[in-house]
Amino acid sequence: KHLIERYYHQLTEGCGNEACTNEFCASCPTFLRMDNNAAAIKALELYKINAKLCDPH
């Protein structure tokens, strides 16, 4: 559950690194913003595939 919350935060708030290159992070310049419901679904999907989590900045 904690990991899913981290994915959700990364998708909605980002890691804080303006030069982030993680396509699944709101801080990445090319990230496409999504609403909270879509972010919750995506967080579950990312958890299932063990996607990369950013280190908070």
Rank of each mutant, 00 (worst) to 15 (best):
K1L: 02
K1R: 07
K1A: 01
H2C: 04
H2Y: 14
H2D: 15
L3K: 13
L3E: 04
E5K: 14
E5T: 13
E5A: 06
E5D: 13
R6W: 03
R6H: 11
Y7G: 01
Y7W: 05
Y7N: 02
Y7K: 01
Y8G: 04
Y8N: 07
H9M: 12
H9C: 11
Q10D: 02
Q10C: 03
Q10N: 06
Q10V: 03
Q10W: 01
Q10A: 06
L11K: 01
T12R: 08
T12P: 00
T12S: 10
E13H: 12
E13K: 14
G14Q: 00
G14S: 00
G14F: 01
G14D: 00
C15V: 01
G16F: 04
G16W: 04
G16T: 11
N17L: 08
N17Q: 08
N17G: 12
E18C: 10
A19M: 13
A19C: 06
A19Q: 14
A19K: 13
A19V: 12
A19P: 08
C20M: 00
C20D: 00
T21W: 07
N22K: 01
N22F: 02
N22I: 02
E23W: 06
F24Q: 13
F24W: 15
C25A: 00
C25F: 01
C25D: 01
A26D: 01
A26P: 01
S27Y: 02
S27F: 03
C28L: 04
C28R: 08
P29M: 04
P29H: 10
T30K: 13
F31E: 06
L32Y: 04
M34V: 11
M34A: 11
D35T: 06
D35Q: 08
N36C: 12
N36S: 14
N37K: 07
A38F: 03
A38C: 08
A38R: 13
A39P: 04
A40C: 15
I41D: 14
K42D: 02
K42V: 02
K42W: 03
A43G: 05
A43K: 04
A43C: 07
L44N: 13
L44G: 15
L44A: 15
L44V: 13
L46I: 09
L46N: 03
Y47N: 13
Y47F: 15
K48Q: 07
A51C: 05
A51V: 08
L53D: 03
L53W: 05
C54F: 02
D55Q: 13
P56E: 09
P56H: 04
P56K: 09
P56Q: 09
H57E: 02
